[in-house]
Design a protein around this nucleic acid. Structure first.
Lengths: 344, 344
DNA sequence: CATTAGCACTCAACGAACTAGAGTGCTAAT
DNA sequence: ATTAGCACTCTAGTTCGTTGAGTGCTAATG
């Protein structure tokens, strides 16, 4: 049995109906609402075939049918006609995005908030990954006898502070010399590439402050990799309550627990392929807790290099067409904005 | 009609039962479980009186009674016998708290996480209020031709970065001179006290960099007051699902929406009196959305000055005794830890 | 005179039984 | 190949009694 054109049209009709209604769709509904030129009985037969092929499932006998993950996948890959995003909306989004530019984190959080507001799904975002950024400036500042503050600025605009505890008292001037030296040697380095070897080479050329540098730099680099500190942004968590599929406390709890757990979000977004727009449907998700959700993400880049991701998560019955458009367009806006305000 | 000792004992019994069972309490339950030496009929009469006095309410005729906000208030003020917190638990909490000390924010977030884990309620915390802290160090760092980074360190350990956009190119050396000058003049100032007048006085004594300072300092100070950036920490949001009073999607949604809104939490915590431990019961809350919740907070201090708050929020049927103990003890631990690691 | 046993009354919660209605699958006619 | 027709299925509501916890009142009691 093959998927002929009529079957595809019926599948499309069912999925579109289901996305807006959240109710199982029966053959009569389709024959009435869509002009397919065949009777409900024919549609009934076709639906039976579509179920056999795995694109539809029946919650119970004597109910209509709902799309399976496989059905949604086909829909997304083949049946989605990409309409253009409303110009006004695009313009508004970009306006909101650049309304108040502070640090990059602020910008990304802004993007997440816009995304949730415009799509009415929960939005996710990760701030530029420090490891993938280049070191732009490094500065050591004495705080008191036992502490110095290391400030690291990256090309993507991220500023990261680390308080270091030290034994020996180092003078302001000495710290300045070390700062300058580190700047000189490490500027432009990919932060992820600064490893033991690099640090070893670093101190080969300098004798006076060798010990201090070996005390300071590894701790500093380590603290940059602290994942608990990494910027994960969420907005619109409570949007999930608007969907009938989460009219169940257990499910709502599971969703919110998952999404509030930053490491989950981080792994999910970082593990994915780094393609432009990525769509993960239901059971395709690697986390069991969200096997009834779809996730749509897009990357954002600086200097042609992907540095982070934004996206939304919601029920598999998601308005794919709209969300894909919004996410893509917002990620392009982000690229623009980053280029303009944070260019290397 | 007066509240004699027997009425108080009955009220106490009802509240204690209700806190653990979440079910309306009937007269027979009390007479069986607590040895008050009177029959259920007598208790029935007393309960009727307690209702008339406003300490109890009846969900419907033929149901037991539950405490009113006024009842809880009396309980908290008069009937709570303060038992001591388990020594092991105290020790564990402190251990966890100082397990990994990074910046203050990290410490406060740690406290919130411990609080939620130990009490099984949603926990809240605010990071040290920059306005109430003193300036310890200020440093201007050039990023590129159009941007400089201002790093401000306070006595409470908070490090705050602000990226400033400038027109004219300022050399590294000039920035250093300005940094040193500002340090010299502003160190020790309460950040909240640095106003236009102070800045005016600041530039009276210096001519060379007057314009630059006037360009930089006000923006810097302003950005410190940006409330969207202020540290509000939450943990255990989903704990609310464990309480039968939130077995209702609408209520759960209202709660989570409220609590996820940082400005709400900020106003709530900052508006309260700044006493040691503060308990707000049900309708005493200024926010309509949480009129069925109680909030228990404690302040934490540095150098005898209150700089922030931690606390929990949950249903009015809260284990007041335990939560008060835990919150108080954790706030003392925080004081200790701050003193040790972040002392001025 | 406070206390209590006794009893009629109330009401939410639960479950059984029934109904309505949407939808299917099959069969036979077109 | 398509479709009208129909028996069948199953959920979601609805009604209606039953149960049981709890109350409030009254009259008896020490």
């Amino acid at each position: 049995m093959m998927l002929d054109d009529r079957k595809l049209r019926i599948l499309q009709a069912i999925i579109q109906s289901y996305i807006t209604s959240a109710e199982p769709i029966g053959s009569r509904t389709i024959s009435k609402s869509y002009d397919l030129g065949v009777s409900s009985a024919t549609i009934r037969n076709e639906m039976s075939d579509l179920e056999e092929l795995g694109y539809l499932v029946q919650p119970h006998t004597s109910a209509g049918r709902i799309p399976s993950d496989k059905g949604y996948r086909l829909y997304v890959n083949k049946l989605l006609q990409s309409r253009n995003l409303d110009f006004i909306l695009r313009h508004d989004m970009k306006g909101k995005l650049i309304e108040e530019i502070g640090e990059v984190e602020q910008l990304i959080y802004n993007a997440a908030r816009i995304l949730s507001k415009v799509t009415n799904y929960t939005s996710l975002a990760i701030a530029p990954q420090i490891k993938k950024s280049q070191l732009k400036h490094i500065q050591l500042i004495p705080i008191d006898d036992t502490k110095i503050l290391a400030v690291i600025v990256t090309n993507s605009g991220t500023v990261k502070n680390t308080v270091l505890r030290i034994d020996s008292n180092i003078s302001y001037d000495h710290l300045n010399i070390i700062s300058n030296y580190l700047n000189d040697k490490l500027k432009g380095y990919n932060i992820g590439d600064i490893n033991a070897e690099v640090i070893d080479n670093l101190v080969k050329e300098i004798y006076e402050f060798k010990k201090t540098i070996l005390d300071i730099v590894p701790i500093m680099i380590n603290s940059l990799e602290d994942t608990t500190e990494v910027g994960v942004f969420l907005d619109g968590v409570t949007k999930i309550f608007d969907f009938p599929e989460y009219n169940d406390l257990e499910k709502a709890k599971e969703f919110i627990s998952f999404v509030e757990n930053k490491p989950n979000i981080l792994t999910m977004l970082l593990d994915g392929q780094q393609k432009d727009v990525e769509i993960t449907i239901g059971s395709e998700n690697s986390f069991e807790q969200i096997k009834n959700c779809s996730v749509i993400t897009a990357t954002y880049s600086l200097n042609g290099k992907t540095i982070g991701k934004i996206g939304v998560i919601g029920p598999t019955r998601m308005d794919y067409s709209n969300v894909i458009n919004v996410v893509r367009s917002l990620s392009l806006d982000l690229d623009d904005t980053l280029k303009k305000f944070f260019i290397d």
